[in-house]
Design a protein around this nucleic acid. Structure first.
Lengths: 232, 232
DNA sequence: TCACGCTAACTGTGATCACAGATCACGGCA
DNA sequence: TGCCGTGATCTGTGATCACAGTTAGCGTGA
């Protein structure tokens, strides 16, 4: 049996088990900052909310715990980990290195349609940020879309998985902070860094792409650390 | 209550659940190359071997599947993924970048006792490799010990977790190949690269450390790709 | 001898139950 | 009024059962 090329190049999508669906739900909440550090996640309660038995939720939570996106405390309670300033700095360093690498690779390898997708995502995020009263949930989602459009263009599935795991850890801190300090959307340089990143990718300039991304990630981190609501 | 400093700086170890023990067992088998690509892993069978119910194994396998260290085929069978040459190249590129970064950080931040531990591990691996008939299982374990002594010295828990996940993917291919072609232990440059890496760390030279590690990882990968038992 | 078909044994997934331990709120005592 | 003890209710962990689907092997047919 022969299959169209476009189809054979497509990644096998996750088996649609209830556990995978539960995982995606929880992962979305985490990267969107809808779950805050310290929030408890009960297996039975979320199972009831999702309308399933405890089993799929249990599996989803197990995976998130393995990624350190959730943690189970010694007292048998699952919660979003409380990130110390030290750990946040570590996370930011790793993100700048790994996502910087992905941005550089994207500059080298992005196909025309991928560049178009990145440009589209950049435009949507810029428009939302420019509104007088930006919708925070939309802005968070559009920021994520832009970043992952770039990372997808790097053409490395393994790197992409690593970055996804990093965002699960960073989401609660970064996007919760954004909801608390929405002025970062305007005063922060996100829009500028995105524009620079897009242009670097268009120019096939990996070094500048990496620098732009590091500015974006590092800038937000500095902002949060200066407000320093983080313990330790 | 006050606790000794040395104690408070220690990482909280994994809760000793049966699921965690099962995970460690399976992870060890994978990084040691004792499980080959394509090998099937039955939940019930391994549960019986470990003397538990299916439940802990199920949880361990779930985590390994999430890391792509195992996969469940569309026909409901869990197996070690079969790595294509393309994917192996991707994995190697990412490993060189990430583990290279860790090596550089280790050169910058390694404490004296950490350097001593690295030197000890280097020596043990060198001795084993020099034997007329090296024990492959020992050599594989000692190589792992050396590498992770370096990565631990980088002082980044997050980077360490990422690298652990990479080794779960690489182990079956690399260490299975080593068992098939044990001459790589002697002809390959591992011992030399390790020595260079150790010296670079001692000299606080991150660039050289990164280069040495890239040589080690890249050299083994080139050897395997040239033998090219990998599909695609 | 080869091919077909059937059954029996296996697969992961989901649900349910059991259990030990921790938490929390309520009530009684000082 | 303030504090301590206690039981009801919650927590995750492990075991067991049910189910639908796949695989593999054996026997029967041509």
């Amino acid at each position: 049996m022969t299959v169209p090329v476009a189809l054979s190049e497509t990644e096998p999508l996750d088996r649609k088990t209830l556990a995978n669906l539960a995982y995606e739900r929880l992962a979305d909440l985490l990267v969107a900052g809808r779950l805050a550090p310290g929030d408890k996640v009960s297996l039975r309660t979320t199972a009831e909310i999702l309308g399933t038995s405890m089993m799929p939720v249990r599996e989803a939570v197990t995976r998130l715990v393995a990624d350190a996106a959730l943690e189970v405390t010694p007292n048998r309670a699952v919660r979003v980990p409380i990130m110390s300033a030290t750990r946040f700095r570590d996370l930011t360093r790793v993100r700048m290195a790994v996502e910087g690498l992905a941005a550089a690779e994207a500059a080298l390898h992005a196909a025309p349609d991928q560049i178009a997708a990145i440009a589209r995502a950049e435009s949507l995020f810029r428009d939302e940020s420019a509104r007088t009263a930006p919708d925070l949930s939309s802005a968070v989602a559009l920021n994520r879309d832009f970043h992952f459009a770039v990372y997808a263009a790097a053409g490395s599935p393994i790197l992409l998985d690593i970055i996804r795991a990093l965002w699960l850890k960073a989401g609660p801190v970064i996007n919760l902070d954004l909801r608390a300090n929405p002025e970062r959307l305007k005063s922060g340089g996100a829009v500028g860094f995105h524009k620079a990143l897009l242009e670097a990718i268009r120019a096939r300039d990996p070094a500048t792409a990496k620098t732009a991304l590091e500015g974006d990630v590092g800038g937000a981190a500095d902002f949060i650390l200066s407000r320093s609501s983080l313990p330790e």
